[in-house]
Design a protein around this nucleic acid. Structure first.
Lengths: 139, 139
DNA sequence: GCTGCTCGTTGGTCAGCCCAACGGAATAGA
DNA sequence: TCTATTCCGTTGGGCTGACCAACGAGCAGC
C-alpha cells in the first residue's frame, strides 16, 4: 500500500515541520507566503494565492496575521482599485530566513535515514509524480 | 525543497483518494478501521486505535458512523466491562472490498507516471524514512 | 453603457490529527 | 483486602489545511 506510505511519511513531515512552525509562532501558510514574497517581490493577494496554491479567502486571513505581526504591509494598488499590494518588510524577511533555517533543520531530521543519493532519488521520484499530475491539472 | 515535494505529493494523494472515498460516501478513517478489522478480526476500540493510529476519541465517532451504516457491530466485552468488541459484518466486508478496489484504482492513477521498479524504489525509500521515525517514537 | 471578469472579503464546510478530562472497570501492589 | 494505578470509552473541545459560495467594488472589452 504505497499511498499509505506516502501519506504516513507526509504526516511525519507535516508534524515535524508543524511543530517547528508552532515553536516559531507561525504556520505553513505564513512560510509559503513569506517565501513567495521574497522570491517574486510584492504582489497582489490573488497572485500570491495562485503562486502558493492557497485559496484567496485563506490568503486574506494569513495576510491579516502576517500584517498584525509586522512581517508584511498591505497597501492599495494605485493602478487598480481592486488590488492590494503586499510587501515584505525587513522584519518579515528576517522571519522568513528564520523559518527557512528551521525548515531545513526539520528536513534534515526527517530524511536523516537517507543517504544523499537516496534523497536525490526520492526527490526525483516525487517530482516525477507531481509534474505528471500538475501537467494534467494544468494551471 | 524535498519536504515540499513530499507534502505536495501527499496532498495529491490525499485529494485523489479523498475524492474516491467521498464518492463512496466514506472517509479515510472508515477504510482504515474496516481494513484493520478484516485483517485482525474483532477488536476493542482502543486496540483499533492503536493499530490504525487513530485517536481513541476519533475511533468512537468513526465506529458510530460505521455502526449506523451497518458495517460494524459494537457489543460489550463479557470478559472486560470496560471494553466494547467491534465486529465486522458481512455488509461491512463488502464495503471494505469495495473501498479497497477504489483505493487501488486511485493509487494506480497517482503513480501512473512511475514504472513498477520506480514504484518499488519509492516505497522502499518511504518505508526507510518511516521505520526510522517509528523506531524513534517506539510504541 | 452594459457585460463579464477580477479582486478582496466574509462566512461557512470538511477531514484529519490531537489533547484534556471524566467515570466506570480492571489490575497491581502493599 | 484495600488502595493506587492503569485502561477504556466517551464527551467536548481545538488546530491546520483545503475548499466553496456569495457579494460588492472595480476594471476591461465591446
Amino acid at each position: 500500500m504505497p499511498s499509505w506510505l506516502l501519506t504516513q511519511s507526509a504526516m511525519h513531515a507535516q508534524r515535524i515541520i508543524g511543530e517547528t512552525f508552532a515553536a516559531a509562532n507561525a504556520r505553513g501558510y505564513h512560510y509559503r507566503l513569506l517565501a513567495t514574497l521574497a522570491e517574486y517581490g510584492p504582489a497582489s493577494q490573488a497572485s500570491l494565492g495562485r503562486r502558493t496554491g492557497i485559496d484567496r479567502s485563506d490568503v486574506v486571513a494569513a495576510i491579516n496575521e502576517l500584517a498584525d505581526l509586522g512581517y508584511v504591509v498591505r497597501s492599495p494598488d494605485p493602478d487598480d482599485g481592486r488590488r492590494n499590494i503586499i510587501t515584505l518588510t525587513a522584519t518579515g524577511e528576517v522571519q522568513r530566513e528564520r523559518l527557512e533555517t528551521l525548515v531545513r533543520a526539520a528536513q534534515d531530521e526527517l530524511f536523516a535515514p537517507l543517504s544523499p543519493s537516496e534523497r536525490g532519488q526520492l526527490a526525483a521520484l516525487l517530482a516525477k509524480v507531481l509534474s505528471h499530475h500538475q501537467g494534467l491539472a494544468d494551471r
